[in-house]
Nucleic acid binder design. Sequence first.
DNA 1: CCGATTAGCTTGACAATGTAAAATCACGCC
DNA 2: GGCGTGATTTTACATTGTCAAGCTAATCGG
Lengths: 143, 143
Amino acid sequence: MHPPAAESRLHEAGLRATRPRLAVYAHLREAGGHHSVDDIARRLAKAGEPLPRQTVYNVVADLTAAGLLMCADAGPGRALYEAAEEWHHHFVCRRCATIIDVPCTRGRKPCLDAPAGLGLQIDEAQVIFRGLCPACRGEPDAA
Amino acid sequence: MHPPAAESRLHEAGLRATRPRLAVYAHLREAGGHHSVDDIARRLAKAGEPLPRQTVYNVVADLTAAGLLMCADAGPGRALYEAAEEWHHHFVCRRCATIIDVPCTRGRKPCLDAPAGLGLQIDEAQVIFRGLCPACRGEPDAA
DNA sequence: CCGATTAGCTTGACAATGTAAAATCACGCC
DNA sequence: GGCGTGATTTTACATTGTCAAGCTAATCGG
């Protein structure tokens, strides 16, 4: 689940393949989904690889810069990271706050163009869909 | 700049037109742009209308629910609010973090459809554009 | 006009999240 | 083996957001 490719990709980015980095990356790949920094730290601690919070912040920042991780935009609040290969968007349920990946129609960045005339140079376009997930649609309007 | 319409709109939403609410709303309309909660509190304090932080949180939540304010998605971190009438998106500069409004091509929600087959009921789609703003494009790659 | 009820405001404390600075450790190189 | 750089760890701190309880003030019924 955590191919040695991770090491090469780190080296390509000029980063050393250290234990914390491999651990965070491997964990995100195995677990899948979207996780906050403290979430990652907690899970790694349970898995017998406790890392200081600050280290996870550093690792996550490095790996994101190296392109191994993506920071998932899901509205204000904590930053969520995921190990993703392909560019995609996110759906956030208004009721249960579940996050569901939404494949990008184009599959590459930027997948959407901003209106011309503003002089903007667009690198990427992240879409956040909001609404009700399948599970919450079925339930009544209970709080 | 803060038409009495604000009062009627509050009443329509079943809310009382109290001083804090009018102050926050008027300030956001006058100042324009995107502001965090503490930002609003600081500015109101300078303007001679100090409000407790918690009150601003309450007011902002109420006004957002009433449709007078919008919560601007601009990535993780603090929540930004703005007094907006029309649905639009945001551009965030990678260098200077400036936020620029991007008009929505459709102008109504949802302005984008998620792929079918996931069973999602989409209410709205917020797009975050990232790249370089006109000012930062001209500058060299200095940090 | 007076009291009861309710919405809203205020206060204080707290938890979560993110950031900064400095010390220690480990690897690669000479 | 000694040095220098990158990485990790530790410590401390600032910011952001939330919870709970009490108080104020506006509204409604008498």
